[in-house]
Design a binder for these strands. Structure first.
Lengths: 213, 213
DNA sequence: GTCTATAGGGTGATAGAC
DNA sequence: GTCTATCACCCTATAGAC
């Protein structure tokens, strides 16, 4: 049973170490600024091994990229898609909460995504199935929004404004973190994180008040 | 009068052409991904000339960077600073309007700034005088916010949340433009721009409703 | 000032020993 | 599988002719 080529998954295998290091470096610096030597060093292995396991820098990047995109939109879209009948306001609360949690764990993800959107590393198609898994989110979530509008429960708003506002309030602080902190005079990282925790509750409230008639 | 070493500024001088090309390429791709060859080609000149006028890629970048940062925070902060007694709500409206206008003209600026914040090209000190010219904005603007809170005219809010929300709503849509457009099914650039125009009025309204007691 | 040619250094990738 | 050594290429920067 514990035979076969695949390892017992006890300790981190070399391949996994490289991938982990690649995720860290790529996510931190983007494709162009990241050097394979950095990744090798971070993984504590030789540069040649990187090309032994993964054929090239670009292949390695695309691997990391797809996993990052999955993180960024996949799980979320799936959860939304699986609960299509949850009340609109609860969907909203759920999204904010789980997204902020995810970003607290991977704070560099927004920069990474932004970087590839702007025409970053590997040949990214923004219409990739991965990205368009968000279509599910759009379908369900925007449908809920329109329903609320039609029933006259909220102020009319263009879907793009709504989506933009929600994403902005959730994601942007993580991108602008250094600027925000110096601007407001915060130096402690813990303080920033606890403020982000606050936003999990605050953002839905803010959005609700925006939509109030 | 029209003598001296400096040109009559009739046609674009070579130096200016290079700088313009550099701004375009650097702003679009960031420091690491930009190649001096791209810049030279964009400027329609030989690569050697780039090093003749500006000593190195890094010097050229720092030049562009400082001008971009100036664009991003300078003029705004100055205007705010020069009208410290304008009513709070008018400050807010003015900021949104002029910032969106500026971003419509330089839509890649947010990407550029975020890129150097994340540890981009030249040795950027985020406590640079240029950045801290924003201190002026902070000083005046946050003061206005606190005053409103003390007078009980708005709901209490942490200054970071307030600044973050304002910046988010203004800036983020320009960063996420491609994603937003596919998500909502917009293909025409003009439509996106006119939606951004709408936001000049909408954002202050949204923020006001957030702060309403 | 502007060009061609090339130096100099770094980066991704591979050959080959172990 | 893992390493050392090295190649081939690309990119920045400069030398030198015009």
């Amino acid at each position: 049973m514990a035979k076969g080529k695949t390892k017992p998954a006890k300790e981190a295998t070399t391949e996994e170490k490289i991938k982990a290091a690649a995720r860290k470096i790529f996510t931190q610096k983007g494709y162009a600024a990241a050097r394979t030597r950095d990744i090798a060093e971070e993984a504590g292995i030789n540069l040649a091994l990187l090309n032994y396991y993964f054929r090239s820098k670009e292949r390695l990047f695309e691997l990391v990229m797809k996993e990052n995109i999955q993180l960024f939109v996949g799980n979320l879209a799936e959860n939304i898609g699986n609960n299509p009948h949850r009340p609109f306001i609860e969907q909203l609360e759920y999204i904010c909460s789980s997204y902020v949690d995810m970003l607290l764990e991977y704070p560099n993800l927004p920069f990474f995504i932004m970087n590839i959107i702007q025409s970053g590393g590997g040949n990214v198609d923004i219409n990739d199935p991965l990205f368009s898994s968000v279509a599910k989110l759009r379908g369900v979530f925007i449908y809920g929004l329109k329903e609320e509008m039609e029933k006259g429960r909220i102020k009319p708003i263009h879907p793009l404004h709504f989506i933009a506002n929600m994403m902005s309030l959730i994601i942007f602080p993580f991108i602008a973190k250094p600027l925000l902190m110096t601007r407001v005079g915060i130096t402690d990282n813990k303080e920033f994180e606890s403020l982000m925790q606050e936003r999990k509750k605050l953002i839905p409230e803010w959005i609700r008040s925006m939509l109030k008639k």
